[in-house]
Design a protein around this nucleic acid. Structure first.
Lengths: 123, 123
DNA sequence: CCGTAGGGATAGGGTTTA
DNA sequence: TTAAACCCTATCCCTACG
């Protein structure tokens, strides 16, 4: 394949937020065409912006099951500094705080079922 | 608790391999929908198929270091070697009664690392 | 025809069990 | 402990609607 899953960087998220603030949510194409954001989001499509915004919104809803405190016990001999370009313009990089979510007790029940609908929606 | 570890049987593995050869790797839902394999894999989900295929690939690659160096691979020029062609070859050599093993160009050719090209790959 | 909205599937990371 | 199976989430793809 060729899509190694392009993870969104902080810069891209910030640009997306700024774009939404500037042009409004839903104006993905407009945001993408803006020279200010097109520099950072030039490899994202309007659909990608829409998807990312959706995901961010869901995450902010507090629907974070139980996954937030695990990666913090192994960093010592591997100085892993990873920064793409975290020094361009501190746009809207504030507000997102990791508030601990309640311990949702999702049991590992017998949920082997899968949508047997399939449905050939091939038009 | 509740979900006993369902070990993969030889029939299931064979069906998975055949499905990959027939429909291509990544088309888990399609493989699952195929009446030929759905009979055997009816209690597996598309995610299960993907996971199993991943495990098989890891085994075939001779690599078994997935669970060790997790915090040390990000911005490296690590060669992305996860070609399905290699996997297919392994499959063929597995000794299955698989005829009609054509390459099957299932690649869509996304290639996100390009530029301002819209890439209208619309069918 | 273009863009947006939504649903569904895939890919990868991480956790649990044998 | 290691490895296979499983679970969760982000991202990507496809289809419908405006």
């Amino acid at each position: 394949m060729g899509a190694p899953k392009q993870k969104w960087t902080s810069e891209e998220e910030a640009a997306l937020k700024a774009g939404v603030i500037k042009h409004g949510a839903g104006k993905w194409r407009t945001i993408l065409m803006d020279p200010e954001f097109s520099t950072i989001l030039h490899l994202r499509s309007n659909v990608d912006l829409k998807d990312k915004w959706r995901n961010m919104n869901v995450m902010a809803s507090g629907l974070g099951s139980r996954h937030r405190a695990k990666l913090a016990l192994k960093n010592q001999t591997t100085p892993k500094h990873h920064e793409e370009a975290m020094a361009l313009s501190t746009v809207v990089q504030s507000g997102e705080e990791i508030l601990d979510a309640k311990p949702l007790a999702i049991s590992r029940g017998p949920l082997r079922i899968d949508g047997p609908k399939k449905g050939i929606t091939r038009l």
